[in-house]
Design a protein around this nucleic acid. Structure first.
Lengths: 156, 156
DNA sequence: ATATAAAACTTTAAGCTTGAAATATCTTGA
DNA sequence: TCAAGATATTTCAAGCTTAAAGTTTTATAT
């Protein structure tokens, strides 16, 4: 995945391969830095942060399946992370009257407060880590990645 | 991390935050697809592929520490993955005369042959998954990400 | 009604990942 | 020389991740 630049391959398709490698290395580098800071400064993890960020947008809560779909991870994965967040009092599960298979998952008041603090720091970190990318480049890149993604989603 | 587009936040720094979210979602989407195909078609995993890709570039082999640095993962992580590749006969460890703490890790002949096959398929998949990105955009994006990364690396 | 399928979620086994501690080896300086 | 520190790697515990199998509940088609 993170194949090296050494032989500098060329030919058809190589530009896209190179793009993918850069994309992956960039996101892994940033992810690693964020993970470390979340651990050191807030004693939490990236997956917990992801779940809380998803829930923060929707005060009334989300279904487990919506959560896993949104986060692009498996169902079982979310179960474990939510379990831990519940045991820490940051997230609550609420059985629903209508469909007893499902449960609404939402941030507790403590979870909401906690996330707001962490998210503010997180936004600052991103600004710092991507500081060298101009605002204009950021918007251009975002646009390219968005159109890529919507194209891609069409195929599944 | 994968915070949602719903409230459509704005303000200083929001463009970079949005860029980061797009970047992460794009790489996770592609990664998930690659993982699935590697499993289904070659019964292997992304981490194994990553290690083999790194070693493929360097026939004489790499030290464990170089490998983990190159792949942006921890030392202990690489140990486990290499252990499994060794037990599958795809990778070999060779103790060195000079420094007996270290060992050179390299692909076996079988590993080299196996990787070449998988890498060809992999390149095709990337071409397919990124097919909607024009070659020109691919080069532009790559350039932006490269300069980002070299800027970033300067700070550590 | 009631079997059958579908859906939502959890559990499980295997593997990946990290950070920290442990081990072994090498290097350096008194 | 040899103790102290540095380096390379492995081990360990905890948590993350997936795919597949299992459980409970709901929907559908006789």
């Amino acid at each position: 995945m993170v194949a090296g630049p050494l032989p500098a391959p060329s030919g058809p398709g190589k530009d896209r391969l190179r793009l993918w490698i850069r994309l992956l290395r960039a996101s892994r580098t940033i992810e690693a830095e964020l993970r470390e800071r979340l651990k050191k400064e807030f004693d939490t993890t990236l997956p917990r942060f992801d779940v809380m960020a998803a829930l923060y947008r929707v005060p009334e809560g989300m279904l487990m399946s919506d959560l896993s779909r949104f986060l692009l991870v498996s169902n079982g994965n979310v179960t474990g992370i939510v379990d831990r967040l519940v045991s820490e009092g940051l997230v609550a599960r609420a059985r629903r009257n209508g469909d007893r298979r499902t449960s609404m998952v939402r941030l507790t008041d403590e979870g909401t407060k906690s996330f707001a603090t962490i998210a503010a720091a997180h936004e600052g970190w991103i600004g710092e880590l991507l500081g060298k990318v101009s605002e204009e480049d950021a918007r251009r890149l975002t646009g390219m990645l968005t159109s890529f993604r919507s194209n891609w989603e069409g195929r599944e």
